[in-house]
Amino acid sequence: MLDVDRQIINALQGGFPISERPYAEAAEKLGLSEDALIARLAQLLEDKMLSRFGPMYNSEKMGGAVTLAAIAVPKARFKEVTGIVNSFAEVAHNYQREHKLNMWFVIAAEEPGEIAEVIEKIEAATGLEVFNMPKSEEYFLEMKLAI
């Protein structure tokens, strides 16, 4: 990875300006030209080093709801249950994890009541218990992962 890319990723995890020429402003702090910063960001996105560049939204503050849920899926049924869970548009992410509770997914809905409905439907369709683990508190300060 180029030093300039590392510098961009470490410096721009937040605080991108809201102004007429924000790339020019951010570039100046990094000792780059506006065009160079735009070009590097485009390349990092194309190379998938960045998932995204822009505002990160908190859907709960927009009136939506999010929860983390988990299921202990019997090994023999893993593929079938994955298909059922993933078929719900409200399931945004789904990860296989190494534990008795081996399927962990995020349910996001625009209306809070939809979360319980989706969980009921998944339980009915799979015959398995869904452990609902909505966050009680978030202790998130900022994106600060140094690479």
Partner: peptide, 28 residues
């Protein structure tokens, strides 16, 4: 647009504006 983005940043609808690193691609 800028006024509304500032307001959303202030009230937390926007967590932050910047890059979202792909941990896996970056070697993590």
């Amino acid at each position: 647009v800028m006024t509304r983005l500032q307001a959303m940043l202030k009230n937390g609808i926007i967590r932050r504006i910047g890059v979202v690193p792909n941990h896996y691609a970056l070697g993590l």
